[in-house]
Simulated scan of single mutants.
Amino acid sequence: MPGRLSEESRRRRDRVLRTLDRVIARYQNGAPLVRLSQDYGVTTDWLRERLLDSGVEIRGLSAARRLRVEQDRRQRDQQPTRPCRLEAPLSDCPTCHDLITAEREALAVQDHSHAVDCRVLLRRHQDSDPHIPPPSPPH
């Protein structure tokens, strides 16, 4: 599926985030961004975003690009976060309750296929049953 990270990519990103102070220090000591992204196995754009989020001044970033990045960050920060369905209280509807419980149990044993099935069934149920407004689309 497009947009899904492989387990290896996720591990690489986690490694960068755990050692971000070291990555920032190397960058501020003159290491090129491209070299750092190669060393850590992440894309240059992703690493640039993490550095910018940490307040690091990026060398060679044009004023127009810097302005776009700042506008994107402000826009992203202004978007309301949706509460996680799995952390919310269970629904009064028995069908919703059963499907959310089944999804939580599947995730607890790392049965992601069954968890996805539960999410699909829950979405279909909520779309067809007027007692619950359908969830808002992701941003």
Score class of each variant (00 low, 15 high):
L90M: 10
R10H: 10
T95V: 15
V16A: 00
H114Y: 12
A106N: 05
L99K: 05
D98E: 14
L86I: 09
P137R: 05
S91F: 01
H112D: 00
D53Q: 12
H97P: 10
D92Y: 03
Q75E: 11
D127V: 01
Q79D: 08
H131P: 06
L33Y: 08
C84Q: 07
G60F: 04
L20Q: 00
R82F: 13
R65W: 09
V42G: 02
D127I: 01
R123K: 14
R119V: 01
E103Q: 10
H112L: 09
R13V: 03
R59S: 10
R26V: 01
I100F: 01
R10D: 13
G55F: 09
C84L: 11
S6I: 03
A115T: 03
I24D: 01
V34W: 02
D77V: 02
L121S: 12
E8W: 03
Q110A: 14
R65S: 13
Y27I: 02
L52M: 10
R65H: 11
S54W: 03
L47E: 01
A108Y: 00
M1D: 12
M1Y: 04
E105I: 14
L36N: 03
R12Q: 13
H112F: 15
Q78Y: 01
E87P: 05
R68S: 13
P2V: 12
R74I: 09
S136V: 08
L67Y: 08
P89G: 04
C93Q: 00
P89F: 00
R104M: 06
Y27A: 06
D21S: 12
C93L: 08
Q126N: 14
L51R: 03
E105G: 06
P94M: 05
C93T: 00
P89D: 06
S91W: 01
R48Q: 14
R85F: 08
P89R: 07
S62G: 14
L107W: 00
D98P: 03
S128G: 15
I24F: 02
P94C: 02
Q38W: 02
H97S: 09
L86F: 11
D98L: 10
Q126A: 09
Q79C: 03
I100Q: 05
E103W: 04
G3T: 10
P135N: 08
L17Y: 03
Y40I: 07
H125I: 03
D117G: 13
D98Y: 11
G30R: 00
R48M: 14
M1A: 15
C84D: 15
G30Q: 04
P94A: 08
C96S: 13
R68V: 12
R73W: 07
S128R: 07
H131F: 00
T44K: 13
Q79Y: 07
D77T: 10
P133D: 11
R73K: 15
R76F: 05
V109L: 09
D92S: 12
R35C: 11
C118D: 04
R11N: 14
D98F: 08
R59D: 10
P134S: 04
L52K: 05
D21N: 12
S136Q: 10
Q126E: 15
P83R: 02
L17A: 05
P135D: 13
R15D: 14
R13M: 11
